[in-house]
């Protein structure tokens, strides 16, 4: 019988291995929409799941420096900002060194910090994060849709515009999910806890309620 933690790490390893398979990698990098909206999010998910591999003492030590998850959120934001630049995406599709950097940094500098920080975030920080995420999908989607020039050498204008459309849809979908969750969702709270929205149950790593 494998534990929840082991299962998380196993799933992360399997996804990572699949993403590394040359045909899969090639297929996902051949289109802008696939690289931005499938490959990179999956790499983030790998890092997120990997938090289960962080020894508990180390996780506790990190949590002490991660008030409300803000340090992790900042790190992830900066790393994500880099991978949102068309220049970086372009290079990651055609230069092996950049591809390697992507496969290492996206899980470790975006996914993992988010995985370790999400449970520490209180309602307000999560709210700001989600609203900004939604706003960013709308802004970037809009920008990709109307940009008169190609943003990447590797991808054509129609691909770019399709990516824009998908981003608008994803932004809308997240917004809908957040709205439904807030209106009718179940929030597991203790009265004195700041930590309101717990989307992840059964997580042995979550620091105690604060």
């Amino acid at each position: 019988m494998i534990s929840v933690r082991q299962r998380s790490v196993l799933i992360a390893a399997v996804i990572f291995a699949i993403l590394l398979l040359p045909p899969v990698m090639h297929a996902l990098q051949a289109r802008m929409a696939a690289q931005m909206l499938v490959q990179i999010p999956l790499l983030i998910a790998v890092g997120y799941l990997l938090r289960a591999a962080v020894p508990q003492r180390l996780a506790a030590a990190i949590a002490a420096w991660n008030l409300n998850g803000l340090s992790g959120l900042l790190l992830a934001t900066f790393a994500a900002a880099f991978w949102m630049l068309p220049r970086s995406l372009d290079a990651a599709a055609s230069e092996p060194l950049f591809t390697l950097a992507k496969f290492v940094s996206v899980p470790l500098l975006i996914g993992l910090p988010m995985g370790l920080s999400w449970p520490c975030m209180n309602f307000v920080v999560r709210g700001i994060f989600l609203l900004e995420l939604i706003a960013m999908f709308f802004r970037l989607g809009w920008l990709y849709l109307i940009s008169p020039i190609r943003l990447c050498n590797n991808y054509l204008l129609d691909d770019q515009q399709r990516t824009g459309q998908y981003m608008l849809m994803i932004g809308g979908a997240i917004l809908l999910w957040v709205a439904i969750k807030l209106l009718w969702g179940h929030f597991d709270l203790s009265p004195d806890s700041q930590q309101v929205a717990r989307l992840h149950t059964h997580d042995p790593h979550r620091p105690a309620d604060r």
Partner: peptide, 20 residues
């Protein structure tokens, strides 16, 4: 305003369960 509303939403949810 958003910050204030988020804090208020958290407080309301803590007491009433959800916004609905």
């Amino acid at each position: 305003f958003l910050l204030f509303y988020l804090d208020a939403a958290a407080a309301i949810i803590r007491k009433f369960g959800n916004l609905g």
